[in-house]
């Protein structure tokens, strides 16, 4: 099939750009580890309260400056609803739900996860800036969806 010369130039440029974009995404994801939250761990959504670590939700120190933050989402709240994190801490957030699908977004960061019944989702982030962060549910979960929120306080180390 004949393609006009100008169209060839246009398509080579266009398709070339797409491959550049894909390479950037791919290198960032596979070489630098910037993968989207894709945890494969499963959990019985009706036994969240008895299943560790979600039987004791909250911040747990796991190493030098390393923490795990285990959170439980349910209509229409997060447990715990307030968390203090020392500045500079590397935190792995694990989150699951007891009922329907929820979102887990920390406003102003790239922490953004779907929380689905039966699964744990997880993302690791270093909190370098002190201040207050809002956690909110960004996936519709029912009448109180827009009231579903929690806070993270990043505080300077004592």
């Amino acid at each position: 099939m004949h393609i006009h010369k100008y169209e060839k130039i246009w398509l080579i440029f266009g398709i070339g750009s797409l491959f550049v974009f894909l390479t950037i995404i791919g290198v960032s994801a596979f070489a630098k580890g910037n993968q989207p939250p894709s945890c494969l761990t499963t959990i019985d959504p009706e036994k969240v309260d008895q299943t560790p670590p979600f039987n004791k939700p909250g911040l747990v120190k796991t190493g030098d400056n390393e923490y795990q933050l285990n959170m439980v989402a349910s209509a229409f709240s997060y447990t715990p609803s307030q968390v203090e994190i020392p500045k500079g801490a590397k935190v792995t957030i694990n989150v699951t739900t007891k009922d329907v699908i929820h979102g887990f977004e920390v406003v102003g960061t790239n922490i953004n996860m779907m929380v689905e019944p039966g699964y744990v989702n997880s993302f690791t982030k270093t909190f370098d800036k002190a201040g207050e962060y809002t956690i909110l549910c960004n996936e519709y979960c029912g009448a109180g969806h827009h009231m579903m929120t929690a806070r993270i306080k990043v505080v300077d180390k004592q």
Binding site: G103, E105, V107, G108, E132, Y133, T134, L136, C137, N138, E139, Y140, H145, H146, M147, T149, R151
Partner: peptide, 19 residues
């Protein structure tokens, strides 16, 4: 880009300065 969620009624998320 500032983080406002879709599919949500009006809320200030407990007077969060970001919201």
């Amino acid at each position: 880009l500032l983080g406002a969620p879709r599919r949500s009624a009006f809320s200030t998320y407990g007077n969060s300065p970001q919201a």
